[in-house]
Design a protein around this nucleic acid. Structure first.
Lengths: 146, 146
DNA sequence: TATTGTTATACTCTATAACTATA
DNA sequence: TATAGTTATAGAGTATAACAATA
């Protein structure tokens, strides 16, 4: 690991850089592993929300995942074509389409969760239980402040 | 912020998701702001390392930024064409090219730093000074564990 | 043989704009 | 007039493979 001397740079102390690096270090292996389920990190996230029981709209998903609504469309098109989720117009407002996972979707999500939880475990492997809780709590406030 | 109810999903508690969301929430505005300097987050990071005085090789930069060496080539091609950095073969090992910023590069980097530090300030705006130090310390261990 | 940097290519992600249907 | 979803497109980011020069 010859690059370790670059930890002395000012860049290495920028929190936004550390966040970006941690994200790449997790998304890359997650995408590689999820591939055998025909998923990627983004479609996994949409599937997770469809499995939540909260019946999110596409707009809510876009806002929550910080994706453009048009990106959500194509991800959902794919998941729906594979019978993993269903979109049905909301009774109250017919512009809104509500998302629910099918039984197959729930099954696949459980498999996917094993993969992502392994990746996540590796991410925090150097931290104690208490440190993990502290980090999660601080990151919650940083990530969902808006 | 109607999406806030999605915070009750299991996805919202995954650290890797929070990290990914925080990264998008910072890289998007950073890229938008850096644009007027002809930079993006990635080229800013390379410039930062060239400005560090550590004279990194392209391989070290690739490893540190988790980029493919070929990606580093094109970023550096651009920065060098704009006379912001110089690459010179290492005396000891002529395969290696070492990076240094020019005076112009240092000037531009200082301007860019103002932008990124504003974005970073917004990222941690909800945290106290002590909480920021705690988060930075934990993220350092998470992001540079390999 | 192994490593550094390079060229090339295909695919995914991101950013915008314009459109439709409903409200 | 505003919002939810959709289509389309261009540009940036990511993943691989193959290669020349040097060690």
């Amino acid at each position: 690991m010859t690059y370790r001397r670059l930890l002395d740079s000012v860049l290495a102390d920028e929190l936004s850089f550390m966040v970006a690096r941690a994200r790449t270090a997790t998304s890359a292996p997650a995408n590689r592993q999820l591939r055998r389920l025909g998923l990627r990190v983004r479609s996994y996230s949409v599937l997770a929300l469809a499995c939540s029981g909260l019946e999110p709209s596409q707009r809510e998903i876009a806002d929550f995942l910080l994706l453009d609504p048009s990106q959500v469309v194509s991800i959902i098109d794919d998941l729906e074509a594979r019978s993993l989720i269903e979109r049905s117009p909301s009774p109250g407002d017919r512009r809104i389409k509500v998302l629910r996972a099918t039984d197959q979707g729930h099954d696949l999500f459980r498999e996917a969760q094993e993969i992502t939880s392994e990746v996540e475990a590796r991410l925090v492997s150097r931290l104690s239980e208490e440190e993990r809780r502290t980090l999660a709590s601080l990151m919650r406030r940083v990530s969902y402040q808006d």
